[in-house]
Design a protein around this nucleic acid. Structure first.
Lengths: 195, 195, 195, 195
DNA sequence: AATGAATGAGCCTTCATTCAT
DNA sequence: AATGAATGAAGGCTCATTCAT
């Protein structure tokens, strides 16, 4: 029942792991982590729950694998940032690239944004938090005014939240991203000058 | 375990509903809505699960009641805002009061912030969304530049997220709130002037 | 909240027991015994569950009281029947009166008919069964042909079931009852002659 | 309690679904639908409740599956009946076969008979009612005398109820069934001639 | 590479019942 | 004559997970 000799099943072979990730991310982003059951994922893929366990040891491992696969660019970005001088130019470049990285993995970040309570209890929670601290250290001058520190954090949050909140707003997504980026850059710049 | 005839139980009488709300909010904010079971709430209060059902018809009704009880000030604020002229002064006043309202019910807003996926599926989701749109309509000039619109949204989000993110930061909470408010006010002001 | 000085509540005084019975019978007949909760009964009456317990010791006692109050005529009928000679005339008279007794307490008998499994486990089950055996002894000649015995049982069942099954049929209820009675009488008469 | 490594468990494999149906029907017929809990069924089978849910999506689905599996002959009979001329011979044949069909699935019909209130609220209620109407249309001449219509209904009910009521009576079950059938046939015949 | 069958823990919810007031 | 508050038991159901095949 479901793809017997028309190639549907054959074509699937070998990429089940990927397909699980795709469906899982879609559902996690849509309904949240706890409200998405493995049964639901399995049913959408037309396989059994046990099949999921062939590819992933636990439910958590699915989200972990997604996180690892999709946030590598950000890891790299932070690594790169650490080795640059903390000039305004560097900061602006970081923000620019960060905005792009978020857009490239937007379903994952939507998930992280909307399931913070859950993420915090998952193993990726710690990792993610560390990454945020990494970004902060690059962008924020610890000697800066408290207000300027807030500006930097606000810049990051504007990028994070912006994308999901603005779904209801009219206009081309890429254009919106640019606007968000501009505001974030502005905040960073003000903060840098303030210091 | 807890209050046999020393008055503990007597003092409890008549305020169980309130106590349920208190404990529930604490746990919801800490662990999330789905991860908090009614068993857990009941145990903390040293009553049975059935007792919760005497006071609330469903689990959802608990969070709904909290939302209704704690967000009235914001409802009022929006109502007030609607009747004012959309001057810069008004906007700044709105932001100032909003910041205060958030701080006054900060555990609830932490919960809403960290459980967006869940909240969206609850009946309060719609209500909350409408409230956000209400704020937006007061603060954002629809003819404004897209960038300025983003500034306004960013201002709101900075206040929302700010409080929870900055828990890790050093410093007096009230001072931090002031800093956040300053950044938000700044964003609103820039947006207003841009238009 | 609910009838303060308009007489609604005053008029109720003293007949709450009766009102409980009325509502309970209505709901039991409509939805069955197990599916009707005391909460539901209480809500319909606009009193608390505890009030029901002031008037009846248990849920079962409500149905027991209804049974006792409403089936006295049948008890009497059987008593009378026992003392008559077992002539055809007597039997026909019994059937006639039985039909009337059923019609007079039809919601109760509908309930008994549709909740046999439940009734069997209740204390009224035994009583009711004994009554049926009483009727049988009066109407059935133990020496009669098996087929004639079945005719008698069929007569009783036709009266029992008839009334509820024929609700869907067109026609005046009293006319239908007459038709049912005629068939039952017929069966009894055939059985009597066969012996 | 039951099957450790002596083959009991092995023999079970592959027929659990059937075993659930068997036990469920037995308990439903004995105690009624609502009074039979899934825990009870599971315990009798020495499996967990969750195992039941592997085979049936809900409690209702268990009774539905039993109904579907066991009443096919009656469905067929009605289909056959519809295509025959409505002669006396046909009607008598229908009644004969119906009596047999009831006897073949007598625990199910005992259940349906004794839990009418419950059945009415279940999805099988509608189906069953339609079937009864189907039988009625074949057997009853709509132009007939009301009394003759009652005779037909009485015939059906005599067969339904007869089997369970007569358990207390002495005598061989098959002989009793024959007697019941004779009375039912008689009623149908009288009704046919009357018209 | 995946299935069929099952488990143990837990969830939300409902119920009949109790008792001090 | 009735309420407010609570309980203990149970119910149906879902979930992540396991394991032999």
């Amino acid at each position: 029942m479901g793809g017997t000799m028309d190639g549907t099943k054959q074509r699937r072979r070998g990429n089940t792991r990927q397909r699980i990730q795709d469906v899982a991310l879609e559902l996690f982003a849509e309904q949240g982590y706890e409200k998405t059951s493995l049964r639901e994922i399995a049913e959408r893929l037309d396989v059994t729950k046990a099949a999921l366990y062939y590819h992933f040891k636990t439910k958590e491992e699915i989200i972990v694998s997604l996180f690892e696969d999709l946030t590598q660019p950000i890891e790299d970005l932070i690594e790169w940032g650490r080795q640059q001088p903390h000039t305004l130019d560097t900061k602006q470049e970081i923000v620019r690239r960060y905005s792009q990285a978020l857009a490239d993995a937007s379903p994952l970040f939507r998930f992280m944004q909307e399931n913070q309570a859950t993420v915090r209890e998952l193993s990726i929670g710690e990792t993610f938090k560390n990454r945020m601290l990494g970004m902060r250290d690059i962008i924020i001058d610890p000697d800066a005014d408290l207000v300027d520190q807030v500006r930097c954090i606000s810049a990051l949050f504007t990028m994070h939240a912006g994308m999901f909140v603005m779904k209801d707003l009219e206009g081309d997504p890429e254009e919106k991203r640019k606007a968000i980026l501009e505001v974030a850059t502005d905040l960073i710049t003000q903060a840098h000058k303030g210091a």
